[in-house]
Design a protein around this nucleic acid. Structure first.
Lengths: 340, 340
DNA sequence: ATCCAAATTGAAAGCGCTTTCAATTTGTCA
DNA sequence: TGACAAATTGAAAGCGCTTTCAATTTGGAT
């Protein structure tokens, strides 16, 4: 198998020392005489030696490999996070192993420990927390993982759980989004978002309602359409919204779960003869790469995903168990217009 | 470390057999008495045993892990391939480890063997073949990899190299794209594509010129703009194209390297007051998820990326060393219009 | 020159598995 | 019933590393 198959033994004999010593310099232990260290380093250089990660892991040492669990990659939102994470990992000489949730999480977070099988030095977890899984169950799972390796939670996070985390303050983001629209004069603001069985969406709803309340707007149930995470769902959600309302009560602005949904919804709006943004303001979330190129260009929330990925890895590596909020900001483009 | 830490020894004693026997049933060896097999299987079930992949790899057995090398993931083109690949891997009980090229290929394919360090059962390689790397160098690298694990090449492939592969016939695709446009009556057809230092782009150019020739159109150097793989590059490439041409010679159609470039280019076109598709037909490649939602919706080549990912894994697993072409088809939408 | 602590090195065990190879059991045919 | 091949099992080595723990060397201090 191993083609370049140089082992620690080869280095040892080349340098005329024991494998223990080689192992020492490999791991950067301090108590090695400078002369010896140099000899070994030369041998390593000469033979192009590369430590075998599997053997390392098995011997109980660091593997130099981190992991990241992400729901999927087709949504660029996650791909950005991944990309940030890899770059940070590389920067500190680590490998990053991706587990796209699809792999393993058919059964929810409880399936996670199974994938901890490969020995990782730590893992970044982007989980979703459906209510039904229950906090107790989740906590149990996380405790189990915690016993075998450090981790940090990102994205949506259960604030009740005392783990290192970088999370989106969805309530704040949502409230701010609503405020932006009310600031533009909108009063009929719909929200096309997720079903409220995940912590994430629950918080969004809270923020949505807070935002409305602050502007003295009464929450309407029929302005709140549940919707999954795709373009098509966005399209049909808007149809569902409009079809159940007399034209006079159609919203003047709609907040989409994310840019995917916003994209779908915009196409749908046109089929109703709605001009964008004149007849309907749309705001998304994620700031996907093509958002500026839609017609009209999409106003959205930039979630700084790459930076999130970077920060997650750094936090993981730091060993710190800090809990912080992820940065974000609203990007004004042309899909929202003042309403009079 | 190992939290659920059940080893083959635990199973062995639970089942009252030797670890050798456990190993046998684990690997599905035939010569185990049915009674024994059942006992062991029960023990495995009871103790929720999960074989340790690292140990396996080190002992020289199958690790149950495949790898895939992809240039990056921000372009959904690759994310789709990855997604297909994971699903096929899961389906056959394998893990899939992603190496996004960024990780390791700073120095070109020659850096590949280094990452073969983790013992993989096989790997899917999506490489790009810049001319300068040279076929000899590449071949050497591939041979080296070949010695340590089976692989299959996907995407663009050097046809001279006798390795299992699923490749895009870029020349055919490109020729067909040109024909589509000439069929619509276009005569001034520009091509905004990659620099011709990669095999991939070389073939596209060949197809482009073939397509033109077949329609009796003379190739113009100034209709051929080199461009990298991004929206922004697409934008500026179009500017470069138009700025160097008198309005009367502006192309009536433009073929973009891919949908990313097409997207950027369309935005740019509008700044020149060009109406799409009336004044300019645009055709992309990749059929990214948002292509139907652009204005106008983008005519493009669907590259069946998920299926490619699936097929690559299957081919890898089959051990077959077949070489085949990847499927594709043109999707007509609204960004191209007949030209009179 | 002598002695002891500190610094440096190495021997050996063990991580969890696969893989010969040998030992034992079983089954079959005479 | 005995003998021999086939089927089934197990002992032990080894994969490449880390990690005690003990042995050796070094360097001051006396």
């Amino acid at each position: 198998m191993s083609s370049g198959g140089n082992t620690i033994y080869d280095i040892a004999s080349a340098a005329g020392v024991s494998i223990t010593t080689v192992s020492r310099v490999l791991r950067g232990e301090p108590n090695v005489a400078q002369r010896t260290r140099t000899k070994v380093e030369n041998a390593i250089e000469q033979l192009q030696y590369q430590p075998n990660a599997a053997a390392r892991g098995m011997a109980g040492g660091k593997t130099g490999t981190l992991g990241i669990v992400l729901p999927q990659l087709l949504n660029p939102h996650y791909a950005m996070i991944y990309t940030g994470a890899v770059s940070a990992a590389i920067e500190s000489g680590q490998n990053l192993q991706l587990f796209s949730r699809h792999d393993i999480l058919g059964k929810g977070a409880s399936a996670l420990p199974a994938l901890m099988n490969p020995h990782l030095d730590g893992i970044v977890l982007y989980l979703e927390y459906p209510q039904r899984e229950g906090l107790e169950q989740l906590e149990k799972t996380l405790n189990e993982i915690h016993r075998s390796m450090p981790f940090v939670l990102i994205g949506t996070v259960a604030p009740e759980l005392p783990y290192p985390a970088i999370s989106y303050n969805m309530a704040a983001i949502m409230k701010s989004t609503v405020s932006y629209l009310t600031g533009l004069g909108h009063r009929r603001i719909a929200f096309i978002g997720g079903a409220a069985d995940s912590t994430n969406e629950l918080r969004r709803d809270i923020g949505y309602q807070q935002g409305l309340r602050e502007a003295g707007i009464i929450y309407r149930d029929d302005y709140r359409i549940p919707c999954s995470d795709t373009l098509e769902a966005g399209s049909s959600a808007l149809r569902q919204l409009l079809d159940h309302l007399p034209r006079s009560e159609w919203p003047s602005a709609v907040i989409a779960l994310n840019d995917l949904v916003a994209t779908g919804l915009m196409a749908s709006a046109r089929t109703y003869g709605l001009r964008l943004p004149d007849d309907l303001s749309v705001i998304g979330c994620d700031n996907l790469f093509y958002a500026p190129y839609l017609t009209p260009s999409l106003t959205t929330i930039d979630l700084h995903q790459q930076q999130l990925g970077i920060n997650a890895i750094r936090l993981l590596l730091s060993g710190d168990s800090r809990r912080e909020n992820a940065a974000w900001h609203l990007i004004e483009r042309n899909s929202c217009r003042p309403y009079f």
